[in-house]
Amino acid sequence: MKQTQIAIDGPAGAGKSTVAKLLSKQLNFIYIDTGAMYRAITLKALELNINLEDESKFTFIDNTRFEFINSKLYMDDLDVSEEIRTSEVAKNVSLVSSHLLVREKLVKMQQVMAENLNVVMDGRDIGYVVLPNAKYKYYITASIKERAKRRHLDNLDRGIKSDLSKIEAEIEKRDHFDSNRLHNPLKQAKDAILIDTSDLSITEVVKFIAEKIREDE
C-alpha cells in the first residue's frame, strides 16, 4: 500500500511546524521537522567547534543519527528539542543549511524516513526537492511583522529573553538569505496550495488541510 506524504513549506515563523505537528496528530501520521534537523546539525557543529563556513568539515553528518519520537527530535539518542532553539543556533543555521554537502546528506535521510510511512514533513524545499511526488503540498506564509510577534511571544513563553524589533530584523534577513541561496532556496512548489496565516488561527489552518485530506483518502 502506497504511503501518503504531506509536504509543508514556508518561511521562518509562519507557523508551518505547529500546523504540521497538529496535523500529524489528527491524521495519526509521523511528523518530520526538517528545519529541526538543520538546527541540530548546526548545534553539533558548534559543539565540535568547527569552522561553519568550511563545507568540508560537515562530514560528521555521516555518523549522526536522527529519530523523531512524539514530535521531539533525538540526535545520537539525545533529545535536543530545546537546545536547537537557542539564539546561537538560530543565528548560524542559515549558513549551515546553505552548504550543498549538508543539504544532500540531510535530504537523503529525510527521503528514507518518508519511504515507508505516512508523513507530514515541513521545511523550505520539501515540495520540490525532498518529496516532489508528495500527494499534498502546502506553502504556509505570513507577514514579517506577524511572524516576529509570534516568535517573540513563543520566546517569552519559553522564558527566553526576547527583543521584538531584533527578531523582526533577523526574520527579514533570514527570508532574504533562504530565498537567494544557491542550493535548494526557499520557494513555493508549482503545485502547492498557498495559505497566508497572517489573519488565520493555527486551528483554522489545520482544520482546512485535514478536511481536504480526509475528503480525498
Rank of each mutant, 00 (worst) to 15 (best):
I167M: 06
D125S: 05
K161L: 11
F29M: 03
N118M: 03
S165C: 07
I140G: 00
D175F: 02
D54G: 08
A134D: 02
V107Y: 11
T4P: 05
I160Y: 10
M75K: 03
P185N: 03
K149Q: 12
I167F: 07
D33P: 08
T18H: 02
K173A: 13
N49D: 14
Q5Y: 00
M37I: 14
V19W: 01
M75R: 02
S143T: 15
P11V: 01
M113S: 04
N63W: 10
D33L: 13
K21A: 09
Y138N: 04
K161F: 10
K72H: 13
L182W: 04
F66Q: 07
E67A: 14
S165P: 10
T59H: 08
K166W: 11
V96D: 11
K190N: 12
A12S: 15
A7F: 01
D199W: 12
I41V: 15
A12N: 03
E104K: 14
A210L: 04
R151E: 13
I32W: 00
L22D: 09
I84Q: 06
E168K: 11
V112H: 10
E53R: 13
I41Q: 00
T59W: 09
F60S: 10
N70T: 11
Y74Q: 03
N155W: 06
I30L: 12
R124H: 00
N92T: 12
I209A: 01
A148G: 06
R124W: 03
K105E: 04
L27K: 01
L27R: 03
G123M: 02
K187D: 00
I195K: 02
N184Q: 09
L43A: 04
H99Y: 06
S24F: 02
S179C: 11
K16Y: 01
